[in-house]
Design a protein around this nucleic acid. Structure first.
Lengths: 125, 125
DNA sequence: TGCTTAGTTCGAGAAAACTCGAACTTAGCA
DNA sequence: TGCTAAGTTCGAGTTTTCTCGAACTAAGCA
């Protein structure tokens, strides 16, 4: 979390992130997160699995949807990842052909403290 | 079977309820509560309102659906209360013609600690 | 007895979500 | 230059959910 101070110019927003990440795909801002939407996005075993696995196994790397190893058609995965992103649960960035995801942990803990604990506590089917 | 209350001191029994309550309508047992189902049931503004209002304003009484004052057809309310009951969020008992509801606070706190806090923290639309 | 009340079930239409194949896009690479 | 990989969008079929009216049920009561 060390701020990379040198390169930050005045007019660019301050990220304490690694350099030069691609911009996130469109997502709701923290203030626009809606509990109903968030709960609805999590009301699906596959999506619950995605979020949980990202939190428990991702070791600070973002992951492609291939990483999860789901045996589903690609278009289905696109559908579910998009649902998670549009509800504000994950952030997605494009790296060349790959689209990598992470959980918006800080945002979610700020707006809905305790929510992610429920996800991690969820015992897999 | 969990070991019974050997180490409980002089505490009053947890249920200081009035006797002779009518049996609850069919509902999932604590162990059968599923996070996906619970979240799905809460992923609706009206149902979120029901649970929240029951928790914040019900002063230990169970309430009929009329108490909420929703301007919706009765069959719609039946639908949503049933959804909440089948997901395990509320317990319903029949008193004559009236069907009264309460939140299954203990069960939910046991299985999904923190969940109900999210509901109470939800700021109304 | 019949009326009112607080619900229910049933059924149908509308809207939303899930699932998936097919065709497409594009970055990287040999 | 063209192949491959990791995704996307589109569209259709299926399923689920929402919504609500209509008809029904049963308790309480004058």
């Amino acid at each position: 979390m060390a701020p990379a101070a040198e390169r930050v110019t005045i007019e660019t927003p301050v990220h304490d992130e690694p350099e030069n990440l691609p911009d996130p795909l469109p997502e709701p801002s923290v203030d626009d997160l809606q509990l109903e939407k968030v709960l609805g996005a999590l009301a699906d075993p596959l999506r619950l699995t995605i979020v949980r696995k990202l939190m428990l196994e991702s070791e600070n790397y973002d992951h492609t949807c291939g990483w999860f190893g789901f045996d589903r058609p690609k278009s289905s995965l696109t559908h579910h990842f998009k649902a998670l992103r549009q509800a504000g649960l994950i952030r997605q960035r494009q790296y060349g052909l790959e689209r990598r995801s992470r959980v918006r942990t800080e945002d979610l803990n700020q707006r809905f403290p305790g929510l992610l604990d429920l996800v991690t506590a969820w015992h897999e089917v």
